[in-house]
Amino acid sequence: MNKYCVNGFKFQTEELSRNKKTNNSGVYIQGDVDGTGQTI
């Protein structure tokens, strides 16, 4: 299986995306620092 969908998010294997012109393999998470309201 090269592509799959989990909870509305689409994923593909690294092998499938290797030959594409663009690739986004990063992960973005926004978090709160010690309850101060500052985000990292």
Score class of each variant (00 low, 15 high):
residue 9 F to A: 12
residue 17 S to K: 01
residue 6 V to H: 13
residue 14 E to K: 07
residue 22 T to Q: 11
residue 35 G to L: 07
residue 27 V to L: 11
residue 6 V to Q: 12
residue 13 T to S: 12
residue 7 N to E: 15
residue 6 V to T: 10
residue 28 Y to I: 10
residue 36 T to A: 11
residue 22 T to K: 12
residue 10 K to S: 12
residue 36 T to Q: 09
residue 36 T to L: 13
residue 39 T to D: 12
residue 8 G to I: 03
residue 20 K to W: 03
residue 16 L to R: 05
residue 39 T to W: 10
residue 21 K to C: 01
residue 39 T to S: 14
residue 18 R to I: 02
residue 21 K to T: 07
residue 36 T to N: 13
residue 38 Q to W: 11
residue 1 M to D: 13
residue 9 F to P: 00
residue 4 Y to G: 05
residue 32 D to W: 10
residue 34 D to Q: 10
residue 31 G to R: 15
residue 10 K to I: 09
residue 36 T to F: 06
residue 25 S to R: 07
residue 22 T to E: 11
residue 19 N to L: 02
residue 15 E to H: 02
residue 39 T to H: 09
residue 1 M to H: 14
residue 32 D to S: 14
residue 4 Y to I: 08
residue 35 G to N: 15
residue 29 I to N: 11
residue 8 G to T: 06
residue 23 N to I: 01
residue 8 G to W: 04
residue 9 F to D: 14
residue 8 G to L: 04
residue 17 S to H: 01
residue 1 M to S: 13
residue 24 N to Y: 06
residue 33 V to Y: 14
residue 19 N to P: 00
residue 31 G to T: 14
residue 40 I to D: 09
residue 14 E to A: 10
residue 40 I to W: 09
residue 16 L to N: 01
residue 30 Q to G: 13
residue 17 S to C: 08
residue 37 G to Y: 03
residue 2 N to Q: 06
residue 8 G to K: 05
residue 25 S to K: 08
residue 37 G to R: 02
residue 6 V to M: 12
residue 23 N to F: 10
residue 34 D to P: 00
residue 34 D to W: 07
residue 26 G to C: 05
residue 7 N to F: 04
residue 26 G to Y: 01
residue 11 F to C: 02
residue 6 V to G: 03
residue 1 M to T: 09
residue 12 Q to K: 04
residue 11 F to W: 12
residue 29 I to E: 10
residue 31 G to Y: 11
residue 28 Y to V: 09
residue 24 N to M: 04
residue 18 R to K: 13
residue 14 E to H: 08
residue 6 V to L: 15
residue 23 N to Y: 05
residue 28 Y to N: 09
residue 37 G to C: 05
residue 18 R to Y: 06
residue 16 L to S: 10
residue 39 T to G: 10
residue 13 T to Y: 00
residue 11 F to I: 02
residue 3 K to V: 10
residue 38 Q to M: 13
residue 2 N to M: 00
residue 15 E to N: 05
residue 6 V to Y: 12
residue 29 I to W: 06
residue 22 T to W: 14
residue 4 Y to L: 14
residue 20 K to S: 13
